[in-house]
């Protein structure tokens, strides 16, 4: 598995349990990339654009993948996705929506804003771990990231 420090995973998740479970699932699947956790939408955007707490961050290394929950404090997931796609610096950023819901409005909203994938978090942790394994395999290993400077 790819495990270079460069390939950061940005996990946008407000629920500490889900965060812990996600990180456990990643670890269980030997995905050792650095996981940056943003606990609300605003924090996620700060990280991505080097603002706020992340002011001055080197933006030349974008996250390998953003795992984005939808129901978030401050700025919700769809809005975060929208801003990512609107900004030239992040418009090719791979974003995988990882959320509890499979409501139609969420699915349509995510895909129409340019989500690369939509994964529903199962209740069964075994299934959840399997999903995380596959996401990691796909986005961190198989998928070719877009060129860094466009």
């Amino acid at each position: 598995m790819a495990n270079t420090k460069d390939n950061v995973i940005l996990l946008v998740e407000d629920n500490a349990d889900d965060e812990a479970l996600a990180i456990r699932a990643l670890k269980k699947n030997n995905i050792l990339n650095e996981v940056v956790v943003a606990r609300d939408g605003a924090e996620a955007l700060d990280y991505l654009f080097g603002t706020g707490a992340y002011a001055g961050r080197d933006l030349t290394t974008p996250p390998q993948v953003v795992l984005l929950d939808l129901k978030l404090p401050k700025i919700n997931g769809l809005e975060v996705l929208k801003r990512i796609r609107e900004d030239a610096r992040t418009r090719f950023q791979p974003v995988v929506v990882l959320t509890s819901s499979k409501e139609e409005q969420d699915l349509i909203g995510s895909y129409s804003l340019g989500a690369n994938s939509y994964i529903r978090k199962p209740v069964d942790f075994s299934q959840f771990a399997e999903a995380v394994r596959q996401v990691g395999l796909y986005w961190l290993v198989l998928n070719e990231a877009p060129p860094k400077q466009l």
Binding site: L21, R24, S100, S101, D106, K121, V123, D124, F125
Partner: peptide, 22 residues
């Protein structure tokens, strides 16, 4: 309500299942 159920009611269950598994 459904939206909220969809998002919020399942998260605790995932916690229960996930940490039991852990």
């Amino acid at each position: 309500f459904a939206y909220s159920v969809s998002h919020d009611l399942r998260a605790p269950l995932r916690g229960m299942d996930g940490f039991s598994q852990a």
